[in-house]
Every structure is written in structure tokens, then in C-alpha cells.
Amino acid sequence: MATPSDVSDVPATPAAPAGSPPKRPGPPGAPGADAPPVVPRRHVGRLLSAAAALLVLAMVLVSVVRNEAFQWEVVGQYFTTSAVLDGLLLTLWLTGAVMVLGFLLGTLLAVMRLSANPVLRTLSWGYVWIFRSTPLLVQLLFWFNIGALYPTLALGLPYGPRLFTVQTVNLLGPTLTAVIGLTLHESAYAAEVVRGGILSVDPGQTEAAQALGLSRSRTLRRIVVPQAMRSIVPTAGNMLIGTLKGTSIVSVLAVHDLLYSVQLVYNQNYRVIPLLMVATLWYIAVTTVLSAGQYHVERYYARGTSRGLPPTPLQRLRVRLTGLRARLHAVTAPGGR
């Protein structure tokens, strides 16, 4: 008989519960139990390629772990220092703020772009055109030097009296400048993501809502956007991860984010590699959490779109463990068959 791993790709009958082990010759009472058993094909090539890939992976891992230059003890030493954690916190805060503000502005831009008003449509198009056509770094440098363009900012009526005037450099610190610069750039991309999502919803949905007397804004909020989310979420998740890593660009503005914080440390002690490793591991950790979150948000918005959703990895694991425990129990129990 073949080993279980050999037959794991043989599809179990769809009716079988998800956790039941695929290999169990002839469940009792199954039709055709007396038919000759089918011996699964052996996948020799697959085994060999898997072994080769695992060998390469092991070699890489060993070289990384045993390479003294990585200085893993230094990594451990700095991994949770307050300077690094403060940097991580600012990176998370920046990512969250930019994502929320960017998508709020982006949604507004998308609605403008899809509106019947040609002026709003053109303005939205122009905004997206400008902010997607210039590199983020260039935009950030512009915002950082905004004080040269507009030395003072004033609050007042258009062409009327000024109520309140402030020096631009005093109002806009590096962090606020970073938030503004990143948000404006992000919103141009978010606008396209949201617009694509709205366009992906069947126009019949809007028509049905109109025929029922639902207002435009309610139709958008209750009918169109919830369905658009299905195509928005995967791209937005992608953007969120991109933004998390993209915030590292603000280190050029001397904003104390994760990357800049480790740079400050290694500029003093010259342990460049282990400190970059600290930042890398934190970025990976946060991205992993975000990916898991995205999976579950996607499932939420997938409700009603198919006849049944597949179980989550956690549910699958639980079912598998229950099945394993039952089998163990059957083996160990006296007189168990």
C-alpha cells in the first residue's frame, strides 16, 4: 500500500466530511465495496523534486544560521529595545493613518470620477494623473520643502480677511508632512482601486435599487459598496502591505520610523547587518499578521457569493486534529478495530 502522502492529491469524494482521511480502503457499506481496490499511482518525479528543493532550502537555512556575520546575538539584543519599538509604533501609526485617510480621499475621488458632473469627473482624473505620474520620493521632498513655496499659511475667507496666520514650518513637522505626502499619493491609487470595485458591480443592482426608490447615497452605501468590497479588499490588502513597507521611504525625511530608528543605532555602533535584520524581521512579522487579517476580511465580504465557503485553515486544522485524536483513540483503546 502507498503511504498517505502519496495519495493526498487524490480528491476525496466531495460528500466526505473535510477532515476524514482520504485513504481508507472502502468505507463500510460504500457501494462497490467488493470491487477490486484501485492502487494509487506513485509519483516518483514529484518525490525527487521535493527532496531536491528541501535540500536547497536546508543549505540556505544552515548558511544563514551559521554565518557569523549575521550576528544573531546582536539581533536578539536590539529586537525589543525601546528605540526600535518606538520606530515600529510610528511605522504602524503612519501606515494606519495613511491607509485610512488615503482610502477616504480615494473613495471621494472615485465617486467624483463616476459622477455625472463633468467638472468633478475631470478634476478627479487630473488629480490621479498628477499624483501617479511623479515618484513618491519626489512628492515627499516637495512637501518637506513646502515652506519655501508657501512660507505662511492663513485661515480666512477666500480673498477676504485673514483670521489666523501661521508659519508653515512651525505647523508642519516632519511626521505630519510625511502623513500628508503619503496620503495624497496613496489616495490616487486608492481612487483607482475603489473605482474598479464599483465598476465591477452589475449595473442591474443599481437599477433594482432605483426601481425600489432607494436614494443614490443609500444605493452606494448599502448595495454597491458592500459588493464592490469583494474586489476592493484583495487589492487594498496588497496596498496596505505595500504602504507598510513604503513608509520606510520617510526615513529620508528624518522621520523616526522603524527603518530610521535602526539606522540611528547602526550609525553609532556600525553593526549594520544585524540591525537591518531587526527591521526586516519586524516588517515580516507585521506583514504576516496583515495577510491573515486580509484572508478573514475577504471571507466576510464573500458571504452570499457562493453556495458555501471552504473552511479556514484554522477550521481545517481543528477538524484534522479531531480526526487524528479519534484514530489514536481507536488504536489505543482495548479491543479497538
Binding site: A208, L212, G304, T305
Partner: peptide, 28 residues
């Protein structure tokens, strides 16, 4: 005040049957 039934139903796929039917009287 005018009912309309579409060729392709145009039900709201993200709402249950109950919410599909109850949506309009609440919204209006």
C-alpha cells in the same frame, strides 16, 4: 409606488432573502 420585476431578478446577492424584501420599505 411602482413595482418592477427584472428579467435577471437583480436580487441583492449580499443580503438574505428577508433583507432583500425588507430593504426598500425600511429605506423609504
Amino acid at each position: 409606488r411602482i413595482g418592477f420585476v427584472f428579467q435577471n431578478f437583480n436580487l441583492f446577492p449580499h443580503l438574505t432573502l428577508l433583507d432583500n424584501v425588507a430593504a426598500a420599505p425600511v429605506a423609504t
